[in-house]
Simulated scan of single mutants.
Amino acid sequence: MKKKHFSLIVGLSLLLLLGGCDAALIDPQGQVGEQQLTLILTAFGLMMIVVIPVIVMTILFAWRYRENGEATYTPDWAHSNAIETVVWFIPFVIIAFLAWLTWQTSHSLDPHKPLESDVAPLEIQAVSLDWKWLFIYPEQGIATVNEVAFPAGVPVHFRVSSGTVMNSFFIPALGSQIYAMAGMDNDVHLVADDPGTYFGRSVHYSGAGFSGMTFDAISTTDEGFDEWVNKVKESSKTLTFPEEYYVLAEPTRNHPVEYFSEASPELYTQILESFHGGSGGSQQEKHGEQGGDHQGTPMSAEAAE
């Protein structure tokens, strides 16, 4: 009786744990996410071709060859061509198909590949900081922190970099994460099919404030996007490089959503060049090596030298 109660408690606990899981990966909201879900389900189905028969045969063999069973006793049996054929041929076919599928999807789902669309893409520049995300809209001349918006059905070209240690940019419902690295201009193309608010975050541990490094990705109608842009432009804050940028780049935890009505058109480029000794001096000289202790703690300029 105690064993039954224990099994029931374990089962209910697992259900409760699974109930808190983010199901965004299996509920995609864009064409990239849908293709990735198809890939996941296809690979899972191929694996089940092996897993299910193995489980069934394990149970059947245990039953058939149990003590006092009715199986024929054949102590001299050692080989079967039929069994060898099945054991080798089926896995070979599955592996060959998975290899082809991997090659095919590695190209079709390349995050750097622009999405086919009759609509011109919207460029948004994303910079990871300690511990927040800065989004720059070069065409609109605005910037935001921990909130990004774009029209549904419009391909979005995210240019991704980091002003600190390495992070990873990911909106699970839309698919394709991409690394954000200091001084590197990375990119990923995404699109949302319908209006909605989707969860985004960094999925690469970057220090003590990592758990709060999340943002809202808002997919709107065309009119809704224009209204959102106008709302951002009503802010009294501006963002220029280097003074205001370095103030923003200071480590903070659970940083609130913040709007900047004006952002320097060259801000993203200046952030990149700051790590290569370009205009504005080096990032390390200006702000110290953020994350030098893997917790986003700035290092002094003297220590950096």
Rank of each mutant, 00 (worst) to 15 (best):
F275G: 10
G153S: 10
G69F: 03
E250F: 11
W100C: 04
F260G: 07
V165A: 15
D118S: 12
V156L: 01
E84G: 00
W131L: 00
P75Q: 08
F170I: 04
E258A: 07
V87R: 11
P111K: 02
I83H: 14
S274V: 13
F158K: 06
A71M: 06
M47P: 00
L39F: 10
Y245T: 03
D293N: 15
V50S: 11
L60C: 03
A149M: 02
L8A: 13
G291R: 10
Q270I: 14
L18G: 14
A43P: 00
Q104E: 13
D110S: 06
E70S: 15
V188K: 06
A249R: 11
K4S: 12
V10G: 06
E302W: 10
Y205A: 08
H189S: 13
V93N: 09
H255G: 02
P298L: 00
A62D: 04
G141Y: 11
C21K: 11
A126W: 14
I55F: 06
G288P: 01
R253P: 00
V119P: 09
T85M: 15
L109P: 01
E147H: 10
I83E: 11
E289H: 02
G277M: 07
P53E: 00
Q140P: 06
G278K: 03
K132N: 04
L15S: 14
T252L: 00
K233N: 05
K286G: 05
T38H: 07
N186F: 01
G207D: 08
I271A: 08
V229Q: 10
A62E: 05
V154K: 13
G45A: 11
I171L: 11
S279P: 04
E67V: 06
G296Y: 03
V154G: 04
L174P: 02
H204P: 03
H287M: 10
Q35P: 01
F225A: 07
L16C: 12
V148S: 06
W131C: 15
P111Q: 05
L272F: 10
E273V: 10
L17F: 12
G296F: 08
L41N: 15
Y198V: 12
T238I: 07
M213Q: 15
L41M: 08
A249W: 02
W228L: 06
V86M: 09
T72P: 04
I59C: 03
P195I: 06
D22K: 07
G207N: 04
L267K: 07
A120H: 01
D22V: 11
A173R: 08
L101I: 11
A301W: 00
P251I: 14
G296R: 01
P53N: 09
E139N: 13
I59W: 12
G19F: 15
W228S: 02
E250D: 14
E262R: 12
D118P: 00
D187W: 01
L129Y: 10
G20N: 11
S162V: 06
E123F: 03
G278Q: 01
E70P: 06
A62T: 10
A249G: 04
F260M: 13
